[in-house]
Simulated assay, not measured.
Amino acid sequence: MIMAWFIAKPCALGLKVQANGPQKAQPNAILEKVFTAITKHPDEKRLEGLSKQLDWDVRSIQRWFRQRRNQEKPSTLRKFCESMWRFTFYLYIFTYGVRFLKKTPWLWNTRQCWSGYPYQPLMPDLHYYYIVELSFYWSLMFSQFIDVKRKDFGIMFTHHIVTVTLITFSYVTNLTRVGTLILCLHDAADIVLEAAKMANYCKCQKLSDLLFLTFAVVFIVSRLGIYPLWILNTTLFELYEALGNFPALWVFNVLLMVLQILHCFWSYLIIKAAYKAISKGKVAKDARSDVESSSDEEETVPRSKAPHSAVATNGTSGANGTNGYLTGATSSEEH
C-alpha cells in the first residue's frame, strides 16, 4: 500500500488519470434512508411507492439508486494504483522465478521434479519464492471482502482458496519443484493484464486493446496449452511412474484439475472479449465491471413528474474501469 500511494499515485496524476470517482447522486433523505436501511436494489413495487411519495418518475429513481451504488465504488485513481502495485509485484516475482528456474534441472526436464523425492533439500531461494507468493495470495483472498463485490466473487474466492491450498499443500508435502513451475507459469499472463488495465485507466484505448489481446493469447497458450501438456502431464503420469500411488498424489492432482476448470471458464470469457475486440474494433465492456451503467443514462437530465422536483442525475460514464478483465477498453482476474 505504501508503494500504491507514494509511488503509484504521483504516476497516475502525472498520466492524468481521473482522481474523481463516479458521479454522486443528488442528496435525498428519503432515498438515502431506503438505500442504507432497507435495500440498495428496490423492486418495482417499492419504486412505484417512492415515485408517488417524491413525485419523481420511476426512471429517475432507478438512476438515483444506480448512481448511489456506483458512489461506493473505488475511483479510477485508486484502481490505477492497485493495478500498478500488482503489475510491479507480478513483474518482480515472475522475473525472480525465471532467474531461479533457469538454474534448476527440472525446468528443462520435469522428471527431475521427482528425482530423490521426498528427500529433496529446500533451497533458500525456493523457500523465499514460496513464502512471497503465498503471502501475496493470502492478501488477495482477504482483500476480496473489503473490495467491491463483483459478479464473479464466488469464482474468484474459489480460485484463491484453491491457490492458497495448493501452495501450502505442495510446501508441506515437499512438492515444491513442480510448484515453482506452476507459480511462474501463472504469473506470466497477469503482468500483461495489469498493464492493460493501467492503459485503460489512462484512456490509452489502442494500447489497452493491444495489451488485452496479448494477454488473451498468453493466458490461453499458458493455461490451456502449456499447463495441461507440461504441468498436468508430469503430475498425472510422470509422478505416478516415478513414485507409484500415494495419497498426496491424488489430493494434489484434484486441486490442479479444479484449477484447470477455472482456466477453461476464464478462457471462455476472454475469448468472447477478444472476439468482440476484433469484430467491433475495441474490447467490449467486461462482465465483471464494478461500475453499473445503463442506456437510460444517455439522457443528460432525467424527466420528473413536476418541474419543481427535477433532479440532475446523470449516468456514470467516465467512471469506467474494473478490477477484473477490464472495462471500456478491456477483469475472472488474476489467476
Rank of each mutant, 00 (worst) to 15 (best):
F246C: 05
I271R: 06
I261F: 06
R177G: 01
F145G: 02
V148F: 00
F153A: 11
Y268H: 02
L166R: 05
L256D: 00
T173I: 02
M198A: 03
T176N: 15
A274E: 07
L181Q: 09
K206S: 10
A199V: 14
H160Y: 09
G244T: 05
F215T: 05
A195N: 12
N233I: 01
P228T: 09
W250D: 08
R223D: 00
S143H: 12
K206Q: 13
A248M: 08
F237H: 07
I231D: 02
C264V: 12
T168V: 03
G179I: 07
L243Y: 15
K149T: 12
D209F: 01
G244R: 12
A189S: 15
T168R: 08
D187T: 10
L262S: 05
L175F: 08
A277K: 02
L211D: 09
A248T: 12
Y227I: 04
H186E: 01
F252R: 03
H159N: 06
G179R: 06
Y268G: 01
V254D: 00
M198E: 10
F212S: 08
N253K: 02
L175T: 10
V178P: 02
L207E: 06
Q205K: 10
W230M: 09
A248V: 07
T158E: 01
K206W: 14
H159T: 01
A196K: 07
K203L: 14
N200W: 02
P247S: 01
F142N: 04
R223A: 04
M156G: 08
S222D: 09
K272G: 11
H160R: 15
N253G: 04
V192Q: 10
L249C: 06
K276A: 08
A242R: 15
W230R: 15
L262D: 08
L185E: 08
M257T: 08
V164C: 13
I220Y: 02
K203I: 02
F169W: 13
F246V: 01
A273I: 07
F153D: 09
F157E: 00
A248C: 05
F212V: 13
W266D: 01
H186D: 12
L229E: 05
L236S: 14
E241L: 11
M257C: 04
S208G: 10
D147Q: 08
T165Q: 03
R177C: 01
Y201T: 02
A195Y: 14
W250C: 05
L207K: 03
E238R: 14
W230L: 06
L193E: 00
